[in-house]
Amino acid sequence: MIGVGKIKQYSNVLDKPLSKGKQEVSLSAFAFLFSELVQYNQTQVDNIAELERRLEDAGYAVGARVLELLCHRIRLKMEEIVHEHLYALAAYLSTPLLFGNAILGNRRETRLLGILSFVHSTVWKVLFGKVADSLEKGTEHEDEYMISEKELLVNRFISIPKDMGTFNCGAFVAGIVRGVLDSAGFPAVVTAHFVPIEGQQRPRTTILIKFAEEVLRREARLG
């Protein structure tokens, strides 16, 4: 048993069949890698804001790809279902919420709440293994939404030194969210904040999404 032959070669990455996305690695492997990402970026910046911006950039690249990946996968899944249950197609079409309001077929979500719930449930589930704790609309501003998580994966093994103030590694996740939203046609400013919870030692992380004006105008037009 010499480990050869199992890796099948494809001349082009696009010829390779899309994996089902069920593979896993250990959480520590990810935590070690993420910590190197943070430490490396620390060497490239002079201040906290810049560090957060760089982490956000890294996350953005992940988010843009996650959207593309999930769109393809959902489309494949749809085709599979259609083939398997051709006879039940009619019944199926009357339940378009099967994928948590996500993207059906090659279509991407065009409504604000649709894309938000796609991020909050589908994206979160794929990346972090669970639906985000909450999705809320900001009370003060029409264009603000918040996704909150009691223990965000990337903050789990990170303690922020006192001299780094409000720095939040969640900037990486904020970047992922911005990447997904932007690529889906919902430009927004996305930031991560710690919000203390009473009676809990560790604060929760809130991802604040502030949509661009054009997004709200379009949403109003769609009625």
Partner: peptide, 12 residues
């Protein structure tokens, strides 16, 4: 051990 989706790891 606790595990995470390999795609998060790969893309990161």
């Amino acid at each position: 051990v606790e595990r995470v989706n390999a795609e998060l790891f790969t893309l990161t």
